[in-house]
């Protein structure tokens, strides 16, 4: 059986979640591998969430929020960006391939883009293989 990656999607409710909804209302088909959790802002995303996801069986984590300048809370996405860079360093130290995490800016009107990003991410993680088999913890 081919490997179907499990990808956690953490989407801000103002832009990216609405973008994902738009992909739906436009009936854009994309890989069913992403499971979405809605947060108020990417600025709310704690690094622990990502680590927890890997521990609980995620093969990849996609975080998506508003484009720079468009944050509903003014600058939450900038904070997310800074935290994401730190997170990547942390993951590198833990030996987790940085292809397993991705931060994207997807607006409420970019349904098509959401679909593209999910498909790219799914393919990338599919190539990397299951997380647990690649040195991650076997949670």
């Amino acid at each position: 059986m081919s490997f179907e990656p499990k990808i956690l999607g953490v989407l801000c409710k103002w832009c990216s979640y609405a973008g994902a909804d738009l992909a739906g209302t436009s009936r854009k088909k994309y890989a069913p591998n992403v499971r979405v959790v809605r947060v108020n802002c990417t600025g709310r995303v704690e690094p622990t969430f990502v680590l927890k996801a890997f521990e609980k069986g995620a093969d990849g984590v996609l975080i998506a929020g508003c484009h720079p300048g468009d944050c509903h809370y003014l600058e939450g996405n900038y904070k997310a960006l800074r935290r994401f860079q730190l997170l990547k360093k942390m993951l590198a130290q833990m030996g987790i391939d940085d292809g397993r995490v991705r931060l994207e800016w997807i607006s409420a009107s970019e349904g098509e883009r959401f679909a593209v990003v999910v498909n790219e991410m799914t393919e990338r993680v599919r190539k990397l293989g299951p997380f647990a088999k690649n040195g991650g913890s076997n949670g």
């Binding site: 108020n40 802002c41 709310r44």
Partner: peptide, 29 residues
């Protein structure tokens, strides 16, 4: 406005974002 930036940043982890607590989000994950 409930953006949660402070919640994620608090080094002591003692700020809770009502309706978006770490407990709730992690449970959903």
């Amino acid at each position: 406005k409930g953006c949660g930036v402070c919640v994620a940043a608090c080094p002591s982890g003692i700020i809770s974002g009502r309706h978006f607590t770490a407990e709730q989000i992690i449970a959903e994950i």
